[in-house]
């Protein structure tokens, strides 16, 4: 399985962001969207990665970009994780059917039953502008995301 590449339309989905709220990707047309697939809440590397994105949120906002973390954890688990780490962006539950969205994006690892650590940036038209799958165990950081956002041409960037 390989991750959907740049130029592909980002498959639409609707996932729970809290036990009683959902997020539909197509509702974010007109602005860039960052999808950060990660294996699981609580594991040390993911925690670093999500904590890092949390700190960089103001930078992402400069591009009007929406950021979503996505893992196979349940919405209740996400809730506890987000509260414990003081996260200020939504974590989406790719829980039921398990990993379906990760599969659609080509980043589900069937051997471990979790998604790979993969990043997608979509443009305002809902097309994948950039995608990247990090090696196992390596936190990809945020530079690739910022570079991708900078090159989403038609988005104004106030300094």
């Amino acid at each position: 399985m390989s991750a959907l590449a740049a130029g592909t339309a980002a498959p639409d989905f609707e996932l729970k962001s809290t036990p009683d709220q959902s997020v539909r990707l197509s509702d974010f047309r007109g602005r860039p969207v960052i999808l950060a697939f990660y294996p699981a809440d609580w594991s040390p590397i993911c925690t670093d990665q999500m904590a890092l994105y949390n700190e960089i949120l103001p930078e992402f906002k400069r591009f009007q970009a929406a950021l979503f973390g996505i893992s196979i954890d349940h919405a209740w688990c996400h809730l506890a994780f987000a509260q414990s780490r003081n996260l200020h962006f939504p974590l989406l539950a790719d829980f039921h059917p398990k990993g379906r969205v990760a599969q659609t994006y080509g980043v589900y690892d069937d051997d471990i039953g979790m998604s790979e650590r993969a990043l997608f940036v979509t443009d305002g038209d809902g097309k994948i502008h950039w995608s990247y799958v990090a090696p196992i165990g390596v936190n990809p950081g945020a530079d690739g995301i910022l570079t991708a956002l900078e090159s989403v041409a038609h988005v104004a960037v106030p300094a």
Binding site: G141, D143, L146
Partner: peptide, 8 residues
């Protein structure tokens, strides 16, 4: 750091 790929 962010632009250099600091990841934690």
């Amino acid at each position: 750091g962010v632009r250099s790929g600091v990841n934690g």
